[in-house]
């Protein structure tokens, strides 16, 4: 297992705190960071024909937006602190996708931020952190 850590960002404050935490730890331990942005998406949703026809275009736009507004600034931050890293932007159900990537890259742990969802919302939709903690094959750090 390589000395690497997967950190998830999403443009939120929680994500920024997770990045900060992971960056500090990586510098101390000389670990490599896998900087990941998961764009929430499901192959099982129902769309109108028009949405399908525009899907490819929207996908590119979503990736571009995530890259420009979140991933690149985060990457610049890591660069400045001298932390070795690579970046991934990918569509999928968040928890599942993070686990898939963690397994693929053989990371030692996953660092994510807390969204601080209200009780009802997380009851209905579950929380990414909750799902991840339940199903992850590697330790998960949830940064408050």
């Amino acid at each position: 297992m390589s000395n690497s850590v997967l950190v998830a960002v999403d443009g939120s404050e929680g994500g920024a705190r997770a990045l900060q935490y992971a960056s500090d730890r990586a510098k101390l331990g000389g670990a490599k960071l896998i900087l990941t942005y998961v764009i929430e998406w499901s192959p099982y949703s129902f769309n109108t024909p028009e949405e399908n026809a525009e899907r490819h275009m929207r996908r590119e736009q979503e990736i571009e937006k995530a890259t420009l507004s979140v991933v690149e600034p985060a990457s610049a931050l890591l660069e400045a602190s001298g932390v070795e890293h690579e970046t991934i932007v990918r569509h999928g159900p968040p928890a599942e996708t993070l686990i898939e990537l963690a397994e693929k890259h053989g990371v030692q742990q996953i660092v994510i931020g807390r969204r601080g969802q209200s009780g009802i919302k997380s009851l209905l939709f579950g929380s990414v952190a909750g799902n991840l903690v339940q199903t992850s094959p590697v330790p998960v750090v949830v940064v408050p």
Binding site: I39, W41, P43, Y44, S45, F46, N47, T48, P49, N52, R55, H56, R59, E62, I63, R90, H91, G92, T97
Partner: peptide, 12 residues
């Protein structure tokens, strides 16, 4: 991932 899936095309 992120493109129209077979499932979505069928459902539509």
């Amino acid at each position: 991932p992120g493109e129209v899936s077979h499932f979505q095309a069928l459902a539509t």
